[in-house]
Nucleic acid binder design. Structure first.
Lengths: 334, 334
DNA sequence: TTGAAAGCGCTAACAC
DNA sequence: GTGTTAGCGCTTTCAA
């Protein structure tokens, strides 16, 4: 298992090991034939550059720390997929950390990543407190926040125009003839406040009454959506459509509606937000608002690279446009 | 952004930097009060150990390379989640790489990980050729294969008892009264051969006729299951149940059946394999065979640690037992 | 108990 | 063009 080092190759080639280093790094300061001979020899001897040694002297690891609440979550996983592919295409590798359920762990992994000397950190916040939680490290390493809208915090982030998403979704429902649209979901984080705002704005423009159903202690899980929807359906149904603030909640609503014998979209139209993979499944076919996950990940990586490689100071708020994905859970009223 | 180093702390403390190192590493060779004073100082100065320097001298990075076909795939993502949590609990970090669609990329990322000096590699193979594909690196670094059954290849791996899975699934269908069970899926990889074998064995014991429907060029995607199922449903339906070799295929079959107006489980019972997250969704509720993903990931990490930390030679084949998850797509025949 | 110093494998500045 | 050499920040002998 002993690794071949530069020295070994140098000895075999009868040159100094600096020469080997030059040959490999494509330095112009070296003879053509020497280079070819050495490159060939390295190949034969199975030499591979030791990145940790290189990182040591270059003071750059070409490592990006990726922090997500839980990679076992299709939204995070999609972002991670594109981020890794894009990072690797630019010579970076990804160090993955789940920030878990509590803020403590989120802080811990960020610290850990710092010790690992990552060149930058890409973080999908756990929630609204994340910014405060890791603020102390923000000036120790380039950081880009991903997916959570931090409004005008002095930090770089890439997010979807959440407000616009609910705005176009609400208008779509209106065009289908709906006049009583219930907004279902929490509003604690900035992201969720913005989603609610888009709905409110559309209602104002359209002259619709605003109706909310939510709990301060709710989470964006299917189970939670289901529980809340069960409560909701106990009451009189004085609306024809529900705008769920997340797809997961929408899925929970769907389950509760099915149990209750409420036909979607026959008696009730339903629209979600995020366009997670599950929504396109047969039998689900949930109409929703797409967050451009690929673009978000790629742009976040680009933004981080810009900070790392060009030392870009200050911050950028990159807001991408969401789009409506029409499927089968919304119907036109006569 | 300048980092505080051991030297800085040493200077501030008026001791040599070896002493600081000792204080931090919990060496017994140091005075109690000196240690306390130094630890406190490190804290105040915001010192964090530089892992790359440490890795350099210790010749150990505490890094595990995790290679998955695509993290944007709930099966891989679940494994990754548990692997990362477990690894971190033992002081390791995860370097994540998607091995993408082709073998070339898989090989590339393994080489890359080697250059990064990872202590070990956990790999979820792309397919049956993976073993050959990366065999050359198997003696350069500890490797554990995850999820794919390599039968008796001389490599360590953790997999589900695939044959047992289809065996119990087939028996379950039999108990429900089904006598004509169609096996739907590919059989190229060892894993898939084993799944087919379990079905065959159950059929023999139970005196059932074996029926197969598959294509050599099939993949385990929903789209592919759907396409194949459309062809299948063109023919006469002389079976009452389908055993799909993967959940994704089962989901595709479900879609094709819905389109064709075939009622599941009314006219046709359906069972899948893997128990991916999607199967538990409302309206889907697919009966399936669970692969114990959490155990698989945790045990794979343990196995890798054993190789890394104890220099365990040879190989182990760890086979975990799958279990039946009864949901709503199988019905009892009268 | 503490300090001095070697060295991990590499890059880059400086000679020649 | 190529060789020599000084570190990068740390751990770990070896001395004291």
């Amino acid at each position: 298992m002993k690794n071949v080092t530069l020295k070994d190759v140098a000895k075999a080639a009868g040159v100094s090991y600096a020469t080997v280093s030059r040959a490999l790094s494509g330095s112009p300061q070296i003879g053509r034939e020497t280079r070819e001979r050495i490159v060939k020899l390295c190949d034969e001897m199975g030499y591979t550059t030791n990145y940790v040694a290189r990182s040591m002297v270059k003071k750059k690891t070409d490592l990006i720390g990726l922090v997500v609440p839980s990679i076992d979550n299709s939204f995070d996983a999609e972002l991670a997929y594109y981020a890794e592919m894009s990072a690797r295409a630019h010579g970076y590798n990804i160090m993955l950390c789940n920030s878990g359920p509590d803020l403590q762990q989120e802080k811990t992994v960020v610290k850990l990543l710092l010790g690992r000397q990552v060149d930058g950190i890409l973080i999908v916040p756990q929630g609204p407190q994340t910014y405060e939680n890791i603020r102390a490290y923000a000036d120790q390493v380039p950081i880009v926040f991903l997916s959570e809208n931090l409004r005008d915090q002095p930090q770089s982030y890439v997010a979807t125009d959440n407000s616009h998403g609910t705005y176009i979704g609400t208008r779509y429902l209106y065009e289908l003839g709906h006049r009583d649209i219930l907004y279902f979901g929490r509003r604690q984080s900035t992201t969720h406040q913005l989603r609610a705002e888009g709905y409110i704005r559309a209602c104002r423009e359209l002259g619709l009454e605003q109706r909310f159903f939510n709990s301060d202690f709710s989470s964006s899980s299917i189970a939670n959506g289901y529980q809340l929807a069960r409560e909701l359906f106990e009451r009189e149904m004085d609306y024809t459509a529900i705008f769920a603030s997340t797809d997961s909640n929408a899925l929970g609503i769907m389950k509760a509606a099915d149990e209750r014998g409420i036909d979607i979209p026959g008696q009730l139209s339903l629209i979600g937000f995020d366009n997670i993979q599950m929504t396109s499944l047969p039998r689900i076919e949930l109409t929703t608002i797409e967050q451009p996950k690929r673009d978000m990940a790629v742009q976040a990586v680009d933004m981080l690279r810009d900070k790392i490689e060009n030392g870009r100071q200050g911050y950028i708020h990159q807001i991408l446009l969401p789009s409506l994905v029409k499927r089968s859970t919304c119907r036109a009223l006569d």
